[in-house]
Design a protein around this nucleic acid. Structure first.
Lengths: 256, 256
DNA sequence: CGGACGTTTGACAAGGATCAAGTTTTGTGG
DNA sequence: CCACAAAACTTGATCCTTGTCAAACGTCCG
């Protein structure tokens, strides 16, 4: 869904002014001055295929990216390879800001689909704070927002049952993706989820097998169904009730 | 441990310049100018007893505080009262920054001990971003740091066993508290943990009963023991190995 | 056609939850 | 300072959600 668009090819990278993401209703408007500065921060665009490592756990002073197109995951691992996905990254999300603030990446980032990244100059972050207070504010906002996503996920893992966790995550991804979709493509039937059941399991703190069985039970109960990787919601409200989902109000999101 | 110091009484609130927290090695140094601005942001100090609600879930545009002394918890709840503690707040931690960024508190905050809060002017946050880029940077840093704590906790809840989770949390609190302790009081035997086993359970995504039994098993194995609320580490290294703990390097922390 | 990868299912084990009492500690009022 | 109640901690018995093991099945792709 976010792949294979004309502007996805780094060769003909669009200017930040014309960035198609800006047109999405979730993002706040920037002044021409701000956009010019953002453009000056961007070094280039990088295209990666699915399954590539974008950031490594433990990497110090890692590059700063923003996700232009495609999906990615942010995760941590234990020495014996148990993995916990912290959150899913969608177009517009910044990658490596937390790591740059703290000096070292305490997590890894990996692409789920083919992906295009805007690479930014780390050294200009400081100029951003010096000259563009609004953008500095946005940087904190983005960090705060990501934290609140992790907070939400932590409540799920710690206190919800397996089926509630799955319900919650699917509702979350469903709603979140809607926000990013230009109206045309939301006409597409269903939502393309570029993830395996192993990803679901790793995001929810469950085993693969149990995830599979729970998923099946939910499908059999008629909440949703899959055709390939496409998710069709047949009872969104029911799923939300099952998950104890609460709508979170949100303001326009900054696009750095 | 952090209570009942002479300067804890709001009546004789010390100036921000003389703030005893500044003397702790974990905090970065500020210029006189920065400190003066911080002082101008502070409205007053507020003393609360243990168990009070500082921030309510769902509260919009909540006040902005920093924790001057005492312990607090940040948590979320489900409609049926299941609770998940997101992290523990220690002196120097900011309360309500995420909520102010996003416009609404998605979590609650509650005092664990008697507590003194510095209350700050929310409207001056903007002046901070305008006039003090270094402090703006610190604000993002603090948010990023808190997020990384939640990331770490999420890995525990999602992928560690009950005993590993307990080991991890105790090691974490032990080390973190050490960083805040002036040398004199670290001479005190043991560490005063102002939390019940229910708090441990709520932080770790476990039931109270199972937390109790696991805690006992760990005590019997000789990793640590309790005298009242005082924790004595007898095998810190062993506990760290059990938990797959990795040392996290950290730079001086900003004190806003 | 044959792997590699992802999904599905069943059987079984086990970690953790729940239920139900006790016991100890803490706090409070007399 | 004692007495009593409330809160916190313990423990055992039992249930059940979730994990582990094993194997089969499907599907995509070289």
């Amino acid at each position: 869904m976010f792949t294979a668009r004309p502007f996805d090819r780094p060769g003909n990278a669009v200017s930040c002014e014309a960035c198609p993401l800006r047109r999405l209703p979730v993002f706040r408007e920037n002044t021409a001055d701000e956009i010019a500065f953002i453009a000056s921060m961007r070094i280039d665009q990088i295209a990666l295929s699915a399954g590539q490592t974008i950031l490594q756990e433990g990497e110090s002073s890692p590059p700063l990216y923003s996700l232009f197109s495609g999906w990615a995951i942010r995760y941590k691992t234990l020495p014996d390879d148990r993995r916990q996905i912290l959150n899913f990254l969608l177009p517009g999300d910044v990658i490596g800001l937390q790591a740059n603030m703290l000096g070292e990446a305490a997590h890894a980032v990996e692409s789920l689909t083919d992906v295009v990244l805007c690479r930014h100059s780390r050294s200009k972050i400081w100029d951003l704070y010096q000259g563009y207070p609004e953008l500095a504010f946005d940087a904190t906002w983005l960090t705060a927002k990501e934290e609140s996503l992790v907070d939400e996920a932590m409540l799920s893992i710690g206190r919800r049952s397996a089926s509630q966790r799955i319900a919650m995550l699917l509702v979350h991804l469903y709603r979140r993706t809607r926000d990013y979709l230009p109206s045309e493509s939301s006409a597409e039937p269903g939502l393309l989820l570029p993830i395996t059941q192993q990803h679901l399991a790793d995001a929810l703190g469950l085993s693969l097998v149990h995830t599979n069985k729970t998923l099946r039970r939910l499908r059999n109960s008629g909440y949703f169904h899959f055709t390939g990787q496409r998710l069709f919601m047949t009872d969104l409200v029911g799923l939300e009730q099952l998950a104890d989902y609460r709508e979170v109000p949100h303001r326009p999101r900054p696009l750095l």
